Computed example of a mutant assay.
Amino acid sequence: MTPLLSRTNAEAHLYMDLHPCSCGETRFPRQSAVVALADGDLASRYTGSCAGCGQEREFIFRLPPTVTTAGSGFRYGDDEPSQLLDPGEWLLVSDAYAGQVPAQPATSEAAQRARATLSRAVAALDEVGKFIPTGGDTVPPDAFVSDRGRQLHQREPGRFRGDRLAAIRDAYAGLLSRLG
């Protein structure tokens, strides 16, 4: 099986966090190394023992041919849609991060954590939009390849419209600016 492309380390770590061990535990101390694949491409290899049951875990992700550094702020990848997560998974990640942000952080440290968390929510939301085809206005149903992504799309298909995604992103961006 050919390893899937991971556009950034952040995307690879998020993928690992969303794919638990058979015991249900997601945590494992990750050792990483760059390895050569049979076709000559490079990959990141993450290994470690599950924190829950001790089972050895391994993930291998193909590295992009070039590193993209364009843009500012936190990003999970370049302009192409993810090969690791589908749009439903990205929206669930965005929801989870946004749900951790307090309306009014009590301290400057809490505000800093809130900014970092909300930046990840915005970046995950941006990933959803990358699945909308050029000239399209919604994420197509065939883009949902995971069970959790398909389930979310079936329950709430309107959440994957471009205008709705833009409105939520604008709201998050407004909150980010108020957090300083």
Results as ranks from 00 to 15, higher is better:
residue 113 R to G: 04
residue 101 V to E: 03
residue 113 R to Q: 14
residue 120 R to N: 10
residue 126 D to G: 14
residue 96 A to L: 02
residue 92 L to W: 02
residue 108 S to D: 11
residue 107 T to H: 06
residue 110 A to C: 10
residue 109 E to F: 09
residue 128 V to K: 06
residue 128 V to T: 05
residue 92 L to E: 10
residue 129 G to C: 03
residue 101 V to I: 08
residue 107 T to S: 14
residue 126 D to P: 10
residue 118 L to K: 03
residue 120 R to P: 05
residue 120 R to M: 11
residue 111 A to Y: 01
residue 117 T to C: 11
residue 114 A to V: 01
residue 102 P to K: 11
residue 100 Q to A: 11
residue 93 V to T: 09
residue 114 A to C: 03
residue 108 S to P: 00
residue 122 V to F: 09
residue 93 V to H: 04
residue 120 R to T: 03
residue 107 T to Y: 07
residue 124 A to V: 06
residue 124 A to R: 10
residue 127 E to T: 13
residue 105 P to K: 13
residue 113 R to P: 00
residue 102 P to W: 10
residue 99 G to H: 09
residue 123 A to S: 12
residue 106 A to D: 12
residue 115 R to G: 01
residue 102 P to E: 07
residue 91 L to F: 06
residue 125 L to D: 03
residue 106 A to H: 09
residue 129 G to R: 14
residue 129 G to I: 03
residue 111 A to S: 12
residue 123 A to V: 14
residue 119 S to R: 15
residue 129 G to F: 04
residue 109 E to S: 05
residue 126 D to K: 12
residue 107 T to P: 05
residue 109 E to W: 05
residue 112 Q to C: 02
residue 91 L to C: 03
residue 124 A to T: 08
residue 105 P to Y: 11
residue 110 A to K: 14
residue 117 T to E: 01
residue 129 G to A: 14
residue 125 L to S: 07
residue 126 D to E: 15
residue 117 T to I: 05
residue 122 V to L: 15
residue 106 A to S: 15
residue 99 G to P: 09
residue 121 A to G: 11
residue 108 S to E: 12
residue 121 A to C: 06
residue 99 G to I: 05
residue 123 A to P: 14
residue 114 A to S: 14
residue 115 R to P: 00
residue 117 T to A: 01
residue 115 R to C: 04
residue 107 T to G: 02
residue 101 V to S: 10
residue 124 A to S: 13
residue 119 S to D: 15
residue 110 A to D: 14
residue 107 T to C: 07
residue 104 Q to V: 15
residue 100 Q to T: 04
residue 118 L to P: 02
residue 95 D to Q: 11
residue 119 S to E: 15
residue 99 G to N: 11
residue 122 V to Y: 09
residue 101 V to T: 07
residue 117 T to D: 02
residue 91 L to D: 00
residue 127 E to N: 13
residue 100 Q to R: 14
residue 115 R to I: 05
residue 103 A to S: 15
residue 117 T to G: 05
residue 92 L to T: 01
residue 116 A to C: 02
residue 96 A to V: 00
residue 97 Y to K: 06
residue 91 L to N: 06
residue 98 A to H: 09
residue 125 L to K: 08
residue 93 V to Y: 07
residue 111 A to D: 00
